[in-house]
Amino acid sequence: MKPKTKVTLGVLTFVTAAAFTPIYDIFIKDKIDSVKVVVVKPGADIEKSERLTENMFLIERRDKKDLIDEVLYPDDLPSIIGYDASQLIVSNSIVSKKMIDFDNLVPDASEGEAIRPIMSEMIYAQPGSLRRKDRIDIYLVDEAFVKESNNTNVDGVREPEADASILKKPLLENVTVVYAKDSSNREVTNEVGEGTAKSSESERLNATGTISDLEVILNEEDFQKLMKEIIENKNKLYITYN
């Protein structure tokens, strides 16, 4: 190759590299090091339990090094609309699936909902495999039957006989369990894996403890109905899976 040609190629290479560098920095590097994600619109926080709507969010590019666990990408946005925020989500922040109450475990204050305790002394019988996020039906067992019943199971928990006159119709249906706790106020989970409604029955049998108390979501009307049966009518609660 002639010296003149080498010089010309060298100059062209230098000029091309010099021209490409700002193009790379401005247009290409940003796309390589960043990704589009769902963020909260600037200027407005999303409060805990607030219902999510599409106009609360934007799609923006953020540095990959700034991404958080279970980050929401643009295709994920429709899947969160209509659910509630499980925590405060601040303005201009990246949104994670962990911030969304997919399981309806956050009470809706506008409906009078709150987390209400069901203590062990209120309960006649319940499945030992109940876990957080389960849905339950609550039946009543009257005081006379409780006094007459001498049946016990292997755990020492009395169980009513399969009598249609006892379990006629649930007092409350489809109640969400927020926590299932043992007598030390610790959550009962599966020894292997998550203690959720998606767990297999075999996993549920290996519990970290024996369930004593429950915490459930009830509105004021249902809570008063429940307490009336327990306090005034002296009934006990028989709890089953929904």
Rank of each mutant, 00 (worst) to 15 (best):
T208N: 00
S96I: 01
E159W: 05
K225H: 07
D25K: 07
N153A: 10
F145V: 06
A125M: 04
E121C: 05
A180P: 07
D45T: 11
D108H: 09
I239R: 00
Y139Q: 04
P3Q: 05
I68N: 00
T240N: 06
L9S: 11
N150S: 13
E111P: 02
R186W: 07
N242R: 14
E50C: 03
F223Q: 15
L130N: 02
D134T: 13
A85V: 04
N190W: 10
K168S: 13
I46E: 02
D76L: 03
V192M: 08
P107V: 06
N206I: 10
G193W: 11
N233F: 02
D75A: 14
I32R: 00
E47H: 08
N190G: 04
I46Q: 03
E113A: 12
M227K: 13
D101A: 08
K147S: 09
S120H: 11
L205E: 10
T13K: 01
T13Y: 06
F145A: 01
D182S: 14
Y73V: 10
K168V: 15
E187N: 04
Y179S: 07
D75C: 06
I118Q: 01
E173H: 00
L58K: 10
T5A: 11
I136S: 05
L105M: 14
G209T: 09
S91N: 10
S34G: 01
K2L: 09
N242L: 09
E60A: 14
S129K: 11
D25Y: 09
V71G: 04
Y73T: 12
K2R: 03
V37Y: 03
D155N: 13
K65G: 08
K6A: 07
Y238A: 02
D66S: 15
V35S: 11
V38K: 09
F14E: 05
T13W: 04
I118T: 06
I118C: 01
R51N: 08
L218V: 04
N206A: 15
N92M: 04
N104S: 11
A197N: 07
D76R: 00
E220S: 10
D30L: 12
L218N: 07
P74W: 13
N233K: 15
I100D: 02
E161T: 13
L237P: 03
E232M: 13
Q224D: 13
L214C: 05
L52C: 05
L72C: 09
G156D: 07
P42Q: 09
L167N: 08
N233V: 09
S149A: 14
N153E: 15
S79F: 11
A164I: 12
E159C: 13
R186M: 09
A125D: 08
E60M: 09
Y124V: 01
E148L: 15
L226H: 04
D137Q: 04
A109Y: 05
